[in-house]
Amino acid sequence: MDLSGIGAIAAAAAATISVPATLMVGRWQIRSALDTAERAHEAALATVQATAASTHDQWRRSVRRDAFVQFVLRATEVAWLTVPSDPGTTAEVVKAAEAAVEEALHQVRAAYYIVRLESPELAHTASRLLEAVQRSAAADWRWAAYRRAMGVVELLEAEAGTRFDDVHEALRRLFWAADADADDRQHDRHGEVSNARNDAQQELLALDQLTDDQISTLVNMQTSPVDLIDLTDAVDEAREEFLRAAHSELNDSAPTSGASQTSS
């Protein structure tokens, strides 16, 4: 075989060997491109998921913060409302004021349940604030009614030009009898309390201008007095406790720096 024939055979052989090599290189290139594309897709998906999670967490935190703020505001609004204590206040004005307190209490209860729904962890501290607000509002309501009734007695005294000592003494005896009954666990003083109650009622019944409700209010205040200062302090303490708990929860749920970063 001459040199030209040998060259032709060698060229053909080289071409035959280069075809599989070219195919191998192409496959590697395609696989590398696919791997790169897959990693890019995974990185993009992770970024989207992290961003979505961060956005959702921020939204939930904002919802909780708004719920906390509304609850505290509603609780504070109840404390701002007052029921008239002037004996000259008309029944319509008193009823309107009492209705406003009831509506405010309804609003704070609704806000309380939203807090429980959004943050069950704060249910205990929120419940303490709600109960303190309700007790304080009830005490304010009773005290206003008592002052209106006692105001009528004072007006009658002013008209008569004298102090009704027998009335005040009967009420004072009832108060001390009820107070002693509450403190003395070894002796049954219910009989003393009952007698003192009857005496106070008889003295008040002698004042024809007093209504039955006013007499009941004056008597019941002696057997179940209210301490407005302690109740107000209890509201303030419960509100501060709730604010601390809410602040702590919002800080714990705040996203940390780098939380949305993903590894490449």
Rank of each mutant, 00 (worst) to 15 (best):
D2I: 03
I6F: 15
I6C: 04
A8K: 08
A8F: 07
A11H: 06
A12S: 13
A12P: 03
A15E: 04
S18Y: 12
V19I: 14
P20Y: 00
T22Y: 02
L23W: 05
L23D: 00
M24G: 04
G26K: 05
R27M: 08
W28E: 13
W28L: 12
Q29I: 08
R31E: 12
R31A: 13
S32A: 13
L34H: 06
L34P: 00
D35I: 03
A37H: 01
E38K: 05
E38N: 08
E42S: 09
L45S: 14
A46E: 10
V48L: 12
A50S: 14
T51L: 10
A52G: 12
A53T: 13
D57F: 07
Q58R: 12
W59K: 09
R60W: 10
R60D: 15
R65G: 04
D66L: 10
D66M: 09
F71L: 03
V72R: 09
L73R: 07
A79T: 09
T82W: 14
T82I: 12
P84C: 08
S85M: 09
D86T: 10
D86V: 07
P87T: 07
A96P: 01
A96N: 12
A97R: 07
E98Q: 13
E102K: 08
E102Y: 07
L105V: 02
H106D: 15
Q107M: 11
R109V: 13
Y112A: 10
V115K: 00
V115S: 00
V115L: 01
R116D: 02
E118A: 10
S119E: 05
P120W: 05
P120T: 03
L122Q: 01
A123R: 08
H124D: 15
H124W: 11
T125A: 13
L129R: 01
L130R: 02
E131P: 00
A132R: 02
V133W: 02
Q134N: 10
Q134D: 13
R135Y: 12
R135K: 13
D140L: 09
W141V: 01
W143D: 14
A144I: 00
A144C: 02
A145C: 07
A145S: 15
G151E: 06
G151P: 07
V152N: 06
V152T: 15
E154T: 11
L156F: 09
E157Q: 13
E157R: 04
E157G: 05
A160Q: 11
A160R: 08
F164P: 03
H168W: 14
E169R: 06
L171A: 01
R172H: 15
R173Y: 11
L174A: 05
F175P: 04
A177N: 05
A177Q: 04
D181H: 10
D184W: 05
H187E: 14
D188A: 04
R189N: 03
G191C: 03
V193H: 00
N195D: 15
N198R: 11
Q201M: 09
Q202H: 10
Q202F: 10
A206Y: 07
A206M: 08
D208C: 02
D208N: 08
Q209A: 14
T211L: 07
I215P: 00
S216Q: 05
T217S: 09
L218T: 00
N220H: 06
S224E: 07
P225D: 01
P225R: 02
I229E: 14
I229C: 05
T232Q: 07
T232L: 01
A234T: 11
E237W: 03
F242L: 02
L250E: 04
S253G: 04
A254P: 03
P255L: 11
A259W: 09
T262E: 11
S263H: 12
S263I: 13
S263T: 15
